[in-house]
């Protein structure tokens, strides 16, 4: 048995789907952003796999741009979260009861 490109592609599809599910079921924006990172990593894996299979460096270069974009998105996303948290009062038991629902 040999590891073919399809193995990696299937793994990448599974990872992407886990990211999709996580982003849709979690309510915490921090974790949502982490799920986006999972999805982007799945994309990176598929890029590298295609690059390797096609014997073309272009796919590896694409991963670079994904890295840049991921970093930029995370920076802005975390800044918004910090801005929101500035406006919120400290956690109280009442808050948590609202969140439990």
């Amino acid at each position: 048995m040999e590891i073919t490109a399809n193995w990696y592609l299937i793994l990448s599809a599974v990872l992407f789907s886990i990211g999709v599910v996580g982003l849709l079921i979690r309510r915490n924006p921090l974790v949502m952003f982490m799920c986006v990172e999972l999805m982007l990593n799945a994309v990176n894996l598929s890029f590298v796999t295609f690059s390797n299979a096609l014997n073309d460096v272009g796919g590896q270069v694409a991963v670079f741009f994904v890295l840049v974009v991921a970093a930029a998105e995370v920076v802005v996303g975390l800044a918004v979260i910090v801005a929101i948290m500035r406006r919120r009062p400290t956690a109280t038991a009442d808050d948590l009861s609202v969140l439990a629902g």
Partner: peptide, 17 residues
């Protein structure tokens, strides 16, 4: 960011599903 907000606060962040 998690540490800046505090772990308990980060944990309760919620924008809805």
């Amino acid at each position: 960011v998690i540490m800046l907000l505090g772990v308990d606060k980060a944990e309760e962040l919620d924008v809805g599903r």
